[in-house]
């Protein structure tokens, strides 16, 4: 499990003296293999939180525990921008992230699930944004992470592509369950993916409410069911903005 306890995270205030308090008294516990979606207003500090969990930002007061250890173990991070190395092919990008000998079988399975087998020797510049995102997702899963962080990985994709990659991601996650912390603005997306949705406030970012999604996984293709639950949650989302 992951235990996040951030007492404060500040940034130097722009143009005037003092500090801007971005996150305050933030506590969140995530169970092993749980899929948690963070929903909050734009700029509230969701990416900052993921960067802290990924150990990319150490300038905060608090602690993050993965399992029983305070230091970070393997973190898979799907950034908003796929951050692929343009001079390495799809396969080489994934292989680079894997510490030991990359298992060809494992790699082939991942590429197959994400429908990228025929593009494995292609350079990222020749891929569409949707395909690049899928490569980034494979890279994150390939390292077999203790925690998988996903920062709006389907943003700025057309609806059909986003839906397709969402479905593939869930398929992959069901085959290889990991603890996932997923950031999104889209409540419908959160309901489709999450075991639990955490609503966040802004300035400073705090947990407003946590809601378990009571819809069974096999029912989440049903648009009406998703929409009905979204209507129930809308007032919670509005209260955070």
């Amino acid at each position: 499990m992951i235990a996040i306890n951030i007492k404060s995270k500040t940034y130097p205030a722009k143009g005037r003296a003092g500090q801007h308090l971005a996150i305050a008294d933030f506590k969140l516990a995530i169970n092993a293999n749980e899929f948690v979606c963070l929903v909050g207003p734009s700029g509230c500090g969701k990416t900052t939180l993921l960067n802290i969990v990924a150990d990319l930002d150490r300038d905060y007061d608090g602690e993050i525990k993965v399992g029983q250890v305070q230091t970070q173990s393997k973190i898979g991070y799907v950034f908003q921008n796929p951050r692929l190395l343009p001079w390495r092919t799809v396969r080489e990008n994934i292989e680079l992230a894997i510490e030991d000998n990359p298992s060809a079988e494992n790699m082939d399975t991942l590429l197959d699930v994400m429908q990228l087998s025929q593009f494995q020797h292609v350079y990222p510049e020749r891929l569409s944004l949707g395909m690049s995102r899928r490569v980034a997702i494979i890279r994150a899963f390939a390292i077999n992470p203790n925690v998988l962080l996903m920062d709006e990985p389907f943003v700025s994709l057309d609806a059909a592509t986003a839906r397709q990659i969402r479905t593939l991601t869930v398929k992959l996650w069901q085959q290889r369950p990991h603890t996932v912390l997923f950031v999104t603005h889209d409540l419908r997306e959160a309901i489709t993916l999450a075991d639990r949705i955490v609503f966040l406030s802004s300035a400073p970012m705090q947990v407003v409410r946590e809601i378990k999604v009571p819809i069974a996984r096999h029912e989440r293709d049903n648009e009406q069911v998703i929409e009905a639950f979204r209507q129930q949650l809308l007032h919670v989302q509005h209260s955070t903005t």
């Binding site: 990924a54 973190i75 991070y77 951050r83 190395l85 680079l96 992230a97 510490e99 890279r139």
Partner: peptide, 21 residues
Amino acid sequence: QDLLEMARCYRLGRKKTLLHV
């Protein structure tokens, strides 16, 4: 900077980061 952060996050290590990033 984004690629350097990716390398750090995926713990590529100094040698791999220098050589490939």
